[in-house]
Design a protein around this nucleic acid. Structure first.
Length: 625
RNA sequence: GGCGGCGUAGCUCAGUUGGUUAGAGCACACGGCUCAUACCCGUGACGUCGGUGGUUCGAGUCCACCCGCCGCUACCA
């Protein structure tokens, strides 16, 4: 019987596509929690993995002429290394649903539930798209047609195994009422109570048309379907039915960290499976928000998925981790923009933390020959010690509540306090006045604060803590959270200045593509723009300007003079009679003495330029919106 | 449609059980400092607290209605 294990999971990801920053966000958050708990001395089991069965992967593999496992394995490999490896994901176990250990567990559970009557055979009604070879539920159909291809679907009825959710409905409802901590944040809890109160239908947990999955024991025409397979990974990884010692200390899980879109499966289906198995329920299911791209949901199909590998190649692991953990507050949605990532890095990591380290070590070098002064407790004002002690407790509280961004905010408050303290104490004046004791206390306080920060940041950042410690003259890595207490004895240590801990990122907004939703405008803004169709009447070269043309454009009511910088791309003669789109309510501007009353729309790419025009002719003056 | 939530400075958000001049961070302006990564520190400006009408001595904070936005409303991982 081992000591109790702090068990945290991420969802297992579906490797049909490469993962994006959203997945990285969930996983980094779980990693920070796992690292924190190791630091405070808990035995930790941190599990992530991949959910590899199902129709979609079967189809994708088929398209590539591969077996499903062949198709999926390189993707899984990539997720483990480089993706999670370089992001520093310190998982203790990586589970794949295609592993034998998992198949055995799923089949045994299934068998047991059949035997005790919680799973029964019935008839499943669904819809099937023949050309797509896809099954759909009624609610997914678009106007009664296949949501993928829009073609008609046919009704299929087939034998299926059903899981008796209805039987456990009241028990689950009561459980959620009795355990306010079970579903977080509370808004999700309300939604789930609502959902359950509406009544639970039994869930179809097998399919006949899909071959890529775990067969139903004793009935190999049926494959165990989706959630029943996926959710039970949490039991497999905890050793259920095969590693009794591990299971006894690890189960129930402390936290299932999930995206808000799968909260329901984790708080309805999953607890009922556990109830049916007579197992205790996890302490908490936390549904975190999404990382949006500007305002939009991120997704492969939306073409805006941000590749995490690209991000840490460009900005480094610590800036990325810090940004993810700091920017998205508790349960709410966060918004990814490159501008915000750069800002967080420059302001927090470079200006505040990096610069504090730089100025502290510089002063110890200059005013104390590089050796770390010791503290004269009796004469110290205790300002930094007090703040450090407060932050120490706050971080504990926040991390226990899964409030990761609040914990980081708290740590950076200590850093800011230290920067301010320098301003208040003016060590350079103390040095001039030869006030040795006061100077020593200040320098020690700053050094000690940075040492404490290096401990506090250990769960969040991978490289910075040890780089800070090296510059502080410390050689031992951080081992325990308790090291973040004020009063370390630094005798014999000397600082070792290096280059900036986090160099400021020079970043020009205009250079970046892909974050156009960063400056999203409302439709009311768009309506301010008056676009109209016009026809070019005349076109002539503007003397003394090598790229300007002077045009007259009839906009339905009058001829406008428009000066346009398109001479390199269009000969005047080619433009006459051409329809274009003009911006009609632009303030007039003067070019080479000619007043231009508007602009033409044109697209450009790498030196190419093309005017925008209606595909079919329209009357002049027709609005464009 | 049903249930729930949100709308507070240019941006992201805090605002406890209703109570003196509505806050923080970022951005902006000005000033200071020089140990430091053009950094840091200070000061300042900016808000009809979505709208209307109530309750109250007093409402961002309670009630009603309205406007706008969002989440959930089952078998996709």
């Amino acid at each position: 019987m081992g000591e109790s294990v702090w068990y945290i999971t991420t969802p297992i990801y579906y490797p049909s596509d490469s993962l994006h920053v959203g997945h990285a966000y969930t996983t980094v958050a779980a990693d920070a929690l796992a690292r924190y708990h190791r630091l405070v001395g808990d035995r930790v089991l941190f599990v992530t993995g991949t959910d590899e069965h199902g129709q979609k992967i079967q189809k994708k593999a088929l398209e590539k002429g591969q077996k499903p496992l062949e198709f999926v394995t390189p993707i899984v490999k990539f997720i483990r290394d480089p993706l999670w490896k370089r992001l520093g994901i310190s998982y203790d176990d990586f589970i794949r649903t295609t592993e034998d250990r998992h198949r055995h567990v799923v089949q045994q559970i299934f068998q047991r539930l059949v035997e005790q009557g919680d799973i029964y055979k019935g008839i499943y009604e669904g819809w099937y798209c023949l050309p797509d070879e896809s099954y759909w539920t009624e609610s997914k159909l678009v106007d009664g047609n296949c949501p993928d291809c829009g073609r008609p679907v046919e009704k299929v009825t087939q034998e299926s195994y059903f899981f008796r959710l209805s039987h456990y409905q009241n028990r689950l409802h009561q459980y959620i009422l009795d355990h306010p901590e079970f579903i977080q944040p509370t808004s999700r809890r309300h939604e789930m109570l609502n959902f359950i109160e509406a009544g639970l239908e039994d869930l179809s947990v097998s399919r006949m048309g899909v071959s890529w999955g775990i067969p139903v024991p004793g009935d190999p025409d049926h494959v165990i379907y989706v959630w029943f397979d996926a959710l039970t990974n949490y039991l497999t990884a905890a050793g259920y039915l095969h590693d009794t010692d591990l299971f006894q200390s690890a189960w129930p899980a402390n936290v299932h960290l999930v995206g808000k879109e799968i909260v329901r499966f984790h708080t309805v289906i999953w607890p009922i499976i556990l109830m049916a198995l007579d197992l205790p329920l996890p302490d908490r299911v936390f549904g975190h928000g999404w990382l949006l791209i500007g305002q939009a949901k991120m997704g492969k199909s939306l073409g805006n998925a941000v590749d995490p590998v690209e991000l840490f190649d460009r900005y480094g692991v610590d800036p990325l981790r810090h940004y993810l953990l700091r920017e998205v507050p508790f349960g709410a949605d966060g918004s990814y923009t490159e501008a915000a990532l750069v800002l967080r890095t420059n302001v927090d990591l470079a200006n505040d933390l990096g610069n504090l380290l730089s100025r502290t070590t510089a002063m110890i070098d200059r005013f104390h020959q590089g050796t770390v002064p010791s503290l004269d407790v009796g004469s110290d004002d205790g300002v930094l010690a007090k703040e450090a002690a407060l932050v120490y407790r706050e971080v504990e509280t926040f991390m226990n509540n899964l409030a990761i961004s609040d914990a980081l905010t708290s740590i950076f408050r200590l850093i800011n306090r230290a920067n301010k303290y320098i301003e208040e104490q003016k060590p350079w004046d103390l040095a001039k006045r030869h006030d040795g004791v006061a100077l020593d206390n200040v320098l020690y306080g700053l050094w000690e604060t940075l040492r404490i920060v290096s401990v506090l940041l250990t769960p969040f950042l991978l490289e910075a803590p040890n780089r800070i410690r090296k510059q502080l003259g410390l050689t031992e890595p951080v081992l325990q959270y308790r090291e973040a207490l004020f009063g370390f004895n630094p005798s014999g240590l000397s600082v070792r200045r290096e280059g900036p801990l986090f160099p400021r990122i020079e970043w020009k907004e205009s250079v970046t593509a892909g974050d156009d939703t960063d400056h999203a405008i409302g439709v009311e803004d768009f309506r301010k723009l008056d676009f109209r169709v016009g026809t070019i009447r005349t076109a002539e070269i503007v003397p003394g300007a090598d790229r300007l043309l002077k045009l007259t454009v009839f906009d339905g009511s009058r001829d406008r003079t428009i000066v346009s910088g398109i001479r390199l791309h269009y000969a005047p003669a080619d433009l006459i009679g051409q329809q274009v789109v003009v911006v009609a309510n632009l303030k007039p501007a003067t070019f080479k003495g000619i007043v231009s009353e508007g602009m033409l729309l044109a697209g450009s790419h790498e030196g190419e330029l093309s005017l925008v025009a209606p595909i079919r002719p329209l009357p002049e003056g027709a609005p464009v919106k």
